[in-house]
Design a protein around this nucleic acid. Structure first.
Lengths: 156, 156
DNA sequence: CTCAGTGCAAAAAGTTTGCATGGAA
DNA sequence: TTCCATGCAAACTTTTTGCACTGAG
């Protein structure tokens, strides 16, 4: 591929992607499928499943196929650019990584709000004392209805 | 089935099962597969996946088959006798329900410690104010090493 | 140029369902 | 005796893998 073409290929999907630069900085090759998945993750904005992401890419006629999507999702999670999140009954959802923090997830539309504060330190300490466990990780997520869905008025 | 046989069938698995009585009280039929799953859940004691539970039942030569196991697990969760729990990377684990509360899960052996206190009320209130979300549920789980595994000395 | 990454298709998990039979109440 | 629950097998969904080919660096 000529220098010119390569440059065009990258610009094609480079709409706003500091993300792509970050991938390159981490030593990952910046390829079309990876850019497509990052675009999709950005466009979907809230949380999404692999299937939802694939559907979006198909409608955009940019889907690299299921296998590549799964491989890319796994890679991006390892790279820290996406996070896997858990629902009450649903697992295997993803969201663009937003620094460290936890989330409030809308049960109706999947919208997310992030927050930094994690007032668990005290609880962790007292639990370690009470149980004898050495606690190294935690999972904390909140669920409810986002402001828009509350206005929307559909009964929960 | 004669009265005598029925009685024996129930005694077979009635080893310590207030659980079976609870099922009956809830209006569920107390059947061999359900007793077997309850026994397995009790024996496995910590958290377990459907596959682990089936494996235990197979080794005991009491497995009612995959389909019945899944149906029974779903039923027992609905009945509130089992809970679905989430791991960091693993979902679809189950544990015997221990009242309301949250858990500390050992990352090495899967042992659980339950605790009642859930100091999130304040956090929920301030998050509702900060985000505009109406929060109705939360997911909170801790992970680490249990006392036995710490003594066991395998590096984390 | 070279090797990491891709895309297809096929396979492997994991989970659910249809239907005739069996057993709890 | 009645109907709920079971057990098998087959279907389905979701995710992973093998392999020849392609394109990013």
């Amino acid at each position: 591929m000529s220098r010119l073409l390569r440059r065009r290929a990258i610009e094609l999907s480079d709409s706003g992607h500091a993300l792509a630069k970050r991938m390159a900085a981490l030593g990952y090759r910046v390829t079309q499928p990876r850019l497509a998945v990052l675009d999709a993750a950005t466009a979907l904005s809230a949380s999404f499943t692999a299937a939802e992401l694939e559907h979006w890419l198909v409608t955009q006629q940019r889907s690299p196929g299921t296998a590549s999507i799964f491989r890319t999702l796994k890679l991006l999670v390892e790279a820290g650019m996406l996070e896997r999140i858990h629902g009450v009954d649903e697992c295997h959802r993803y969201t663009l990584s937003a620094g460290h923090g936890h989330r409030v997830v809308c049960l109706e539309c999947g919208a997310l709000a992030n927050f930094e504060q994690c007032a668990l330190d005290g609880l962790v300490a007292s639990l370690e004392q009470a149980t004898g466990y050495r606690i190294s990780q935690h999972l904390l997520e909140f669920f409810g209805r986002c402001p828009a869905c509350q206005r929307g008025g559909v009964a929960a």
